[in-house]
Amino acid sequence: MLRRIAGRAGAPAADGPAVKPIGRPYLLVAPAVAWLLVFSIAPLAFMVAISFWKSSIFGTKPDFQFGNYMRLFTDPLYGNMVLKTLRIAVTATVIALLISFPIAYFLSTRKGLWKGVFVLMLFLPFWTSYVVRTFVWIPILGRNGVINQTLHWLGLIDAPLDWLLYNEGVVYVGLIYVYTLYMTLPIYLSLEKIDPRLIEAALDLGARPFAVFFRILLPLCWPGVLAGSIMVFLLATSAYVTPQLLGGPSGIMLGNVIANQFLANNNWAMGATLSIVLITIAVVPLLIVGRWIGMRQVFLGGRE
């Protein structure tokens, strides 16, 4: 059966080569598929089950009840936290988009060596720890931080400003600093595909830059904008490090509440329930947009 499917599906595609690639497809994908089924899908399914269980001081016991989900609506703490997290994530996404567009356009219009340098400098922070890149704001904004010391040195303040750290505003600073690149890159890649002659032609014909932006650039790089927005929204909704490190009590988000169920309250059932809420709000937009512009577009950059 396996062989029959593979054999038939392996028949030459219209533009493809006549000779079949080596190996049997199902055998080749088997190790990774088995790995993910055991260590990714099964644990996820198990978490869904636990969200119906009951946690008490005696531990978490198998059950089938909707108490955890009911608490989302009866306990205002949880409902408000979900709304606050959504608000922060949406705002951060919009700001990241506004910051990213000009820089993506800048990159797409560079040429030669400088382009390589600028693009590499944009790629490189992806490969540095976001914990460290969040931490850097403490010596900048802290009581003895660069800003306070500079203001003091300039004679503008007598005592250090305390409100620079540990509030919701700093969470935006941290989230945007770390995650804007996930927006810039897809927009840049989609701007790259636009034929520069289109813009030249529009300018030749007397179009103003604003018209060029709204009628040529934006419609053509829409998939990149959507892909970037989805990524930043997903990362921002599930933030833990940034609010924990910079946010203080007023800046905490859903991720911190979830972590506390495991690290402090020992309420695994509620933690599982809140995790499912988080997955839902983070993944549903991705599924909608993925259907719209094609999931492959988001991840493979339209290579297939």
């Binding site: 079949k20 990774a32 979830i258 983070a282």
Partner: peptide, 29 residues
């Protein structure tokens, strides 16, 4: 996986979605 993906096979897009799950699921979860 990549060698397997050179073939055309029926469950291909299902397998691709499976592979992407760990990226798509929030890190904390």
């Amino acid at each position: 996986l990549a060698l397997g993906f050179r073939h055309a096979f029926r469950a291909k897009s299902l397998v691709l979605n499976l592979i992407l799950i760990p990226i798509v699921i929030p890190g904390i979860t």
